[in-house]
Write a protein that binds this DNA or RNA. Sequence first.
DNA 1: GATCTGCCGACATCCTTTTA
DNA 2: TAAAAGGATGTCGGCAGATC
Length: 380
Amino acid sequence: MSDQPFELDGISNPAPEGDSPPPAVAPVAVDRAFGQDNRARLLEEYFAPYGTVEPGNAWKHTYRLLLWLDRTTGLAHCYESDKSQAGRPWYARSLAFHDWVSASLDVDPRDLGEHIDVLFRRASADLAAAAANRRARLAESARKQRSIYLGRGMPEPGEDPELEEIVTAVLDPYLVTPPPAEVMRNLTERIQAHVGQENKRKNLVGEGFEDAIAALLRRVTGVPDVHDIYVRPSLHDLPGFRPPRAGSKKRQVDLALVHRVSGYRTLVSCKWSVRSDREEQFASDFSDYAELEDAGKDFSYVLVTNEFDPARLAAACDMRRQNAPLFTDVVHVNPQGVLAAYSDRGSNAKTEGGQARASRRISEKRVQALGSWLGSLATA
DNA sequence: GATCTGCCGACATCCTTTTA
DNA sequence: TAAAAGGATGTCGGCAGATC
């Protein structure tokens, strides 16, 4: 893959608002910066310079688009942050993964953050711009709303006395004069926005992962010629599935592929990460799909994930329905990244049961690489 | 002490209903 | 009829108790 042609300048540090006019926002981002239309626009922009995608590079695009740095460690996020703190077992694994992914993307480990997380950073910039526009638009009515309380000492929007106190207490020895109230308010608003930003990520990662995989499917040579690709379709819009009974909730699937010649159907569940409640959902989803299957023909059920937890990854491989594996294929963005994390040299772990089990699933190819799955679809 | 397991909160979007 | 409000749904990571 060539060096990042996608323009990222200015994403991380948008200019402070001040008196400057509100920034321009793409129309699709005005109300729903994280919505599917804006995600589609951002993906289109991202992939435009590349044209088609080699299956072997699919994981690089996925990580450039969606992987992020854990703010508490500065390392590529591959596990829950509380267990990834320095000195704890997953810190060593996070270091190993960060080292591996930096080398594989051919970037300096210190600069990795500038090369990944494109989708979230772009959508967040749109969100901030849209919020600035909205504030500017509502400023006049806000002024009217506050006017009847003039002189009553009403708090200003964005004021956070506790946070201001922390900031001024720390900086006090270095300040010649206390910052003006407006400057402090602007600072606390920016700190709050920065801290609150991480909570929004999961809203983008979820469907953003599905969109990114769909975008790759459409760009790997051969796949769109051989398969019709559906993103979050209703099940009954796919051939061979019937609508649910009246009054029952309609069923959706994350992604679906239908072979253009044979009509063979592949239902895909995309989950960036897995928890046990989601594992249960896999089984109940499959049972719903099977119940609504109306053509009397087989279909595949595939999991695409970026889960690093060995127990969860192995469990997904081993889940069964009746006398067959639940998932036809378990696809990981890059199993080599998982193995790199497990191979950390600083770990003092005593038990390796889960890791050994997950590693075995990878070596047996039960966990398949995204690239090889895409390649197999192109030739299917 | 490490790993496994399950629950929960924060959030955004999307769809439906209500209000002006 | 358009805008606003309300509610449902679905996403994920964080967290903590249970187990090994």
